[in-house]
Design a protein around this nucleic acid. Structure first.
Lengths: 207, 207, 207, 207
DNA sequence: GATGAATGAGTGTTCATTCAT
DNA sequence: CATGAATGAACACTCATTCAT
């Protein structure tokens, strides 16, 4: 009936998963809104869970490649510069995929064996890149001798918060992540944080 | 059959909601694990959704009173001190209620009309307290002339991240929020952030 | 809590049974509207079904005594006169107990073993009285040589129709059985029917 | 599994609704007796209530067309003749659909908003046809100057009584509506009623 | 390749009833 | 006596999935 229905199904699914959660969304909801037959979902993705995996996987593949793009500069640039590029890439990527990002961030916090299995590799890779960058910065006295894991946690907190709870961010704080300038503006906050919390002060104050 | 079953039901429900999400948890799951009759859940909380509201409400009531406890010091202490007390209170409260915190943080990100109605008052109050403290600090030149909403967003990101995704935090970052010392240690990070990102440097560097 | 709660429960039950049917009414509905504890219904009437039996029985006891009051005149008056008195009594009785009448007429049409057992005696008695009156009229050449059972059926149809379907009668036909004058007016119709359909014409045409 | 299961479900439903009432019948009863999956009932009729509407609607559609078939003769025949044809059609139709008729007559007497909405149009149409026929008869001095609504009420009472309470009619009055000759015989009673109660005597007595 | 019909397990909720207090 | 708590069965309905066509 519809051209490119697989892509279309995914779009609709992401939108609904975002709004109502994975468990709260039925395959009939998706099929109905995507205007395809229910059986097609099983046909394309084996099962509802297959559709979930597809969404999660495609998010993380792209998310990781954004990190990798920054990480590849580690030979040429200072660690703080690389960290900033990575942060910027993540921010822009998440801004470009608001619904998917929010849904993934939420769903991944479910204590599911299956989800863990899919995600753990990506989590590990992400941590690996962050760790390498931070270690280089520490070794070269660019960063303070910080706890790597605690810093990753904080950075992740800063980078994900604006995308987690749309209602809170937009209606309570009046921050609009879907506006063009948001990523630019919020990136400056992350930059400050890197400069002021991570970097050795005297080094940068002279500059 | 069982004494105090209402409290018991809530405990079990929080645990299951945390693990499987609200939609992913059935009332039969809860009743079974709590060893009570299914009908009791409707009896006590009217409906499954009533049980959800009960959990959310009791979380936010206590959460807000932690903030208020800190906020009440605003007349006597410096803004940065008050902010630190509030942050500390939140951290300890969330550490003491790991499962409920995680569940609430996740569920609240669902785009539900009903959830919004319950939560918006709490969100507004929370923002009010943060705003007052930050404004005082800015007026008294203790804080830099920062954007209040962006700072609240970052603070919330820092304070919630360790509680959002248990698997990630524990298995990937090896940070154990349920250990006694976690809150103490992580509080120091928040303190640094307040000192370095929020506060005017020269003022505090002399001290 | 409430004086005379048994009577009160019955009144509420009749009203609800009438509106929603016996199966469609829950004991909690009744208890709630009657402002008594649910357990009281089991206490007073053993069970929901006991309450039903109580309602049916009390209806038919009174209904039958209205018939008997007319029937007792059979020694003194003409059969047609007696039949008219009985019809009048039934009409006024049913007008005075609109809800109960409607509910009983409906519920009695359910194919239930239990209902049959309660009702058959009353039905038989009612038929007995009608039969006796009609037989006397036929024997004394007052009535045409009609089929007794077919006549009872028609008389019952005429006497019950206005009470069966309130909506139809009031909203479609604009006949208002709860108005004072209805029974008077409708009785004239029944009288005509007796005179014209049952009675030998020449006898009455001379008069 | 089963061909034509929709029709089969309706048949079973009518039978059970007739015996136990709508509220007293569960969808599991129906599915079980019809030997289909419970979910099929929702699938075919959306809900239990959809199944009810389907039954009611199909009854009244056919019932009305029986009336219309008689009414269409109004240009060619006398009003009393037309009324007799309509009465005959109704009697034969109801005899052919005993269970459905009984169930509809009962259920329609429930004070339900929804039922009213479905039925009121049919009721209005039925009244319209009766009214037109009666008015013509009155205008042409064929009928006495009767009250139209009261006459409709009586006619409906006469036509429905034999179908309302199977137990009473068969076991108490020994009238068997499912026997072939019943409709023929009972029609003569209706005919008498029309001739004797509705029609001007002298006109017809000469004939 | 795509679909409508059908399935059985599971959903939240309500039921009449019981019983300790 | 009267009640609120509690029960297990039943309620209508929705679920993801399958499969013949």
């Amino acid at each position: 009936m519809r051209k490119n229905s697989k892509k279309h199904i995914v779009d609709v699914a992401v939108s609904l998963f975002n709004m109502k959660g994975y468990s709260g969304t039925s395959v009939r909801d998706i099929a109905g809104k995507a205007n395809v037959n229910v059986a097609n979902i099983s046909y394309y993705f084996q099962s509802k869970h297959g559709l979930l995996e597809y969404c999660l996987t495609s998010f993380f593949e792209n998310y990781l490649s954004e990190i990798e793009n920054g990480y590849s500069l580690l030979g040429q640039k200072e660690a703080s510069e690389v960290l900033k590029v990575i942060a910027k890439n993540i921010l822009y990527f998440q801004t470009a995929h608001l619904q998917l990002t929010r849904f993934v961030l939420r769903e991944v916090s479910i204590d599911s064996q299956v989800i863990r299995e899919i995600m753990s590799t990506y989590f590990m890779k992400e941590r690996y890149y962050f760790k390498k960058v931070l270690e280089k910065g520490i070794n070269e006295k660019e960063f303070k001798p910080i706890s790597i894991n605690y810093i990753i946690m904080q950075l992740k907190g800063l980078l994900t918060m604006p995308f987690l709870n749309t209602y809170y961010v937009t209606e309570v704080l009046h921050v609009l992540p879907y506006e063009q300038y948001f990523a630019e503006k919020y990136y400056l906050e992350i930059e400050s944080w890197i400069d002021q919390v991570l970097c050795e002060k005297d080094v940068h104050m002279v500059v």
